[in-house]
């Protein structure tokens, strides 16, 4: 089974702080990580490989530094890694990014399954997966929490507002996975050695692929960021600090009743 996993290197947004004086983002000291949902996608890919054999290829679009993220994926057990990197990709929105990644996957050749995380924690759009599936003309299964493959058929649990939706499709498919699907493994020492010592990361630029240059990067993007700003704060409320839980609860109930909330 040929498995492609798309990953993104992101700043760890849980470590990002807002400078209260300047009201701007403090990025200093914030580590770059493999997008957490993408790690679930790699884990899902590795488990499919363990069950059905084949190869796991990890693909990432980003600046040269994204190599570090790909190395981590190799250390987890991925067989090959491809970095798609070119100044021409800069400023890409989801439409241009998905076009670039789909073109990359086409360049790589045959695949049965494409996996990605449900969304990246920096952009939070959850769009690149479905848009890649559209560019490639294949079936998409989003918010997947469980995968069963039998022959050329895949059955998945999709997260849904009211529960899990069980859906069946034929390969090839693109699946975006949620966190509850698995617990990603840690890189092994052997894996790390392999990732560090062997130059397994193939780098592709725009000229290595058959692409329409007008559909890449900023030029190929349909959306444009007008401005960014920090979210407004909610007003400060009432803090209740009595010396016993009993008194605190009584005070809370009295205040809620006064304000006609209950």
């Amino acid at each position: 089974m040929d498995i492609v996993v798309c990953i993104k290197q992101v700043p760890d947004t849980t470590e990002v702080k807002i400078d209260p004086k300047t009201n701007t983002l403090v990025r200093q000291g914030v580590p770059s990580i493999v997008n957490p949902f993408d790690k679930n996608a790699i884990e899902a890919g590795l488990r499919l490989k363990e069950k059905y054999g084949g190869k796991v290829t990890v693909v990432s679009m980003g600046p040269p530094q994204a190599n570090d993220a790909l190395k981590e994926c190799l250390a987890m057990g991925a067989d090959e890694a491809v970095l798609v990197s070119d100044r021409a990709f800069g400023g890409a929105d989801t439409l241009a990014t998905s076009y670039t990644l789909a073109s990359t996957i086409r360049t790589l050749g045959h695949f049965d399954v494409i996996l990605c995380g449900k969304q990246a924690i920096d952009g939070d759009t959850a769009q690149v997966g479905p848009e890649m599936a559209e560019h490639l003309g294949i079936t998409q299964l989003t918010y997947v929490a469980r995968i069963d493959i039998q022959g050329d058929k895949v059955q998945v649990y999709r997260e849904h507002e009211e529960g899990y939706e069980v859906v069946e499709a034929k390969l090839p498919v693109l699946m975006s996975v949620v966190k509850s699907i698995n617990v990603p493994r840690y890189p092994t020492v052997k894996g790390i050695m392999k990732a560090v010592h062997k130059d397994k990361i193939r780098v592709l630029s725009a000229k290595d692929m058959e692409v329409d240059m007008d559909r890449l990067g900023l030029k190929g993007s349909a959306t444009q960021v007008r401005q960014i700003f920090t979210p407004p704060q909610r007003g400060q409320g009432i803090l209740i600090r009595q010396d016993s839980a009993r008194k605190s609860v009584d005070e809370l109930m009295a205040k809620l009743t006064d304000a006609k909330i209950v």
Binding site: L25, Q227, T230
Partner: peptide, 10 residues
């Protein structure tokens, strides 16, 4: 965006 740390107008 950015984990809710910033807002973007598109």
């Amino acid at each position: 965006t950015f984990g809710g740390n910033i807002m973007a107008t598109i």
